[in-house]
Write a protein that binds this DNA or RNA. Structure first.
Length: 547
RNA sequence: CGGGGUGUGGCGCAACCUGGUAGCGCGCGGCCUUUGGGUGGCCGAGGUUCCCGGUUCGAAUCCGGGCACCCCGACCA
């Protein structure tokens, strides 16, 4: 029973000045959330209702595939994280208790659950096993942003699967993937499952669930043929370069005083950006604590951008841009005039350069470039796909790719033995041999589902919830003052709807019609029942369906 | 971590450059008015101008330091 006169619904006409994202502005204006500090948000009653609806959808789908709900603590011994090798993560909150014992605030729960599994599971008969909880996560984010989109404390549903072997993990993964699809369908979102980067920590496959919207922090490459990938890992056939100059028998030096950037060189020589070879000097591998990585000259087409994640994956280790001094010292030419022809460092060329001719590259001396460069003939290189896809590229199925910003609402990850090994999660197989447990993890954020829904179904007027996420099923509004009768009728309807099990918001305020409707638009109930005034007869009501 | 910006009643802003009683709109309380989509009027309450220090007869305003928050980028196991 929710009467607005007894409810806490602090709506605002104007959004906070610093709010930028639509979901941030509207969720605050509609009285769903309030900020307590940077990346710290309170869920007000109506917002918490919506959050619980999202949770419930997730819970039902987890339960349906036999994942067991439980609850693990946020406060954890640091030692657990030291053992897993994740104690050094900057985002991990670290603290001490009164005796000086080292503790952490969990940012996720692989360590905790794996620790338990290690202690509990003995036999192959105990597996497979899937468990989950909804729990607060703490992450010392460098930059919280956009309301509840990226916060330092948030609730996540994280599930974990434990299997006997790789095949078992694959089966659990597919079960979870099915559940994730149903969760997002029921949430009413437009969403894509995209392949994602498994990162330096390895792993055996991962997918992200992306909801396209303007406030998204990620970018996904989509095509009408169904191609969907995070731009971090997306691959595509590049567009052809128009106006490429013809080839030359051999590279020919040209003076290009002061032309260090792609823009300056194209202007100076009158060639398209795609005719350039953009040289990116990088240092590969671990160069901490005095050790220095190896220099490598990565080259991409002038109109392309290097994708550092794809580069790291291609190399099998991280790489960073070389500093100005390193460029001079280790690549042997001033920054801006580095090129692959006669390079001091080994060359890694992007696939898009293969087979091109008549290109322009830095001459490895100041104020000079080379024309007529042909990869393969004029320099040798390893080839790899290390560029970021661009809108307009062609997907493997032959249709054009577009790029859209999206919120990552969930992800699933085949961890393998990444945690079972350091934490000793093993079992005895049928032959009595000790084996490592194979593990997967599956996360989804109710708050991000809500934010994505607001982003996808809202304008500055107000939210327009999918039925499944709305904080209330229906709103009852009384208009007019002649009617104590109207009030009485509305009260009766309200009580009846509540008895039917609907979540009803009854606007029993003595406010002008405009005020009532304005708040209603912001909150965005999917259904509204208005009880009118003049000559009101029993049953003479008007139901207005919004969507 | 790099760059940019902002802190003034609950919210949005002005006054700051050029020091001199802190002002406007919304919201809030009261009375009247209006009653099918943010009515109109009158009255009223509400501010250590983020904090500390300095300059000055006098600081929201100038100077120094700190804190908080926002945005862009980097990062995001």
């Amino acid at each position: 029973m929710t009467r607005l006169t007894r409810y806490l619904l602090p709506t605002e006409k104007e959004a906070p000045a610093d709010a930028d994202a639509v979901s941030h502005r509207l969720m605050v204006r509609a009285g769903l959330i309030r900020q307590l500090g940077a990346g710290m948000w309170t869920w007000l009653p109506a917002g918490w209702r919506a959050h619980r609806r999202a949770e419930q959808i997730i819970r039902e789908e987890m339960d349906a595939i036999g994942t067991l709900e439980m609850l693990m603590p946020v406060l954890q011994p640091a030692e657990l994280w030291q053992r897993s090798g994740r104690y050094a993560i900057d985002e991990l909150f670290k603290l001490q208790d009164r005796r000086g014992a080292e503790l952490v605030l969990a940012m996720t729960h692989e360590e905790a659950l794996t620790q338990h599994i290690a202690a509990i599971v003995r036999s192959y008969r105990d597996l497979p096993l899937m468990a989950y909880h909804f729990q607060t996560k703490e992450r010392d984010e460098p930059r919280p942003r956009a309301g509840v989109l990226r916060t330092r404390e948030f609730i996540m549903k994280d599930a974990y699967s434990f299997d006997r072997d790789r095949e078992g993990l694959n089966a659990s993964y597919e079960l979870q993937a099915g559940a994730y699809g149903r969760i997002l369908d029921r949430s009413g979102l437009e969403w894509y499952r995209v392949e994602s980067d498994v990162g330096m920590m390895g792993g055996f496959g991962a997918h992200e669930y992306m909801a396209p919207c303007g406030a998204g922090e990620n970018e996904v490459a989509l095509s009408s043929a169904g191609y969907a990938a995070n731009v971090e890992v997306a691959s595509a056939t590049p567009q052809r370069v128009e106006g490429l100059p013809g080839g030359l028998p051999a590279p020919k030096p040209v003076d290009t005083p002061g032309a260090r950037t792609v823009g300056q060189v194209t202007a100076s020589l009158g060639v398209p950006a795609g005719a350039l070879i953009k040289a990116l000097p990088v240092i590969v591998g671990d160069d901490t604590e005095g050790a220095t990585g190896e220099p490598l000259l990565v080259v991409v087409r002038g109109d392309h951008r290097l994708n550092e994640i794809k580069l790291a994956n291609a190399l099998g280790k991280p790489a960073r841009a070389a500093t100005e001094e390193e460029v001079q010292d280790r690549f042997g030419a001033p920054a801006g005039f580095i090129g692959p022809v006669g390079s001091k460092a080994p060359v890694l060329a992007d696939e898009a350069l293969r087979g091109l001719e008549g290109l322009v590259a830095g001459a490895n001396e100041a104020d000079r470039h080379l024309r007529g460069v042909q990869p393969g003939r004029d320099f040798s290189a390893d080839y790899a796909d290390v560029r970021s896809v661009e809108a307009g590229d062609t997907c493997p199925a032959g249709t054009t790719i577009r790029l859209e910003p999206a919120i990552e609402v969930g992800n699933i990850f085949k961890l393998g033995t990444r945690f079972s090994e350091p934490l000793g999660a093993t079992y005895l197989d049928a032959s009595g041999a000790e084996r490592l447990v194979w593990m997967g993890c599956y996360g989804i954020g109710p708050a991000r589902i809500l934010a994505a829904a607001v982003e996808q179904f809202a304008d500055e007027q107000g939210i327009s919830w999918p039925r499944s996420l709305a904080p209330f099923d229906i709103e009852v509004v009384t208009l007019g003052k002649e009617g104590e009768e109207a009030r009485d009728v509305a009260e009766g309807i309200y009580a009846e709807l509540c008895r039917e099990g609907l979540d009803v918001l009854y606007d029993d305020r003595d406010a002008s019609p405009g005020e009532k409707f304005a708040d209603a638009e912001l909150l965005g109930c999917p259904l509204r029942l208005t009880v009118g005034r003049k000559g009101l007869q029993a049953g003479e009501v008007e139901a207005q369906v919004r969507r």
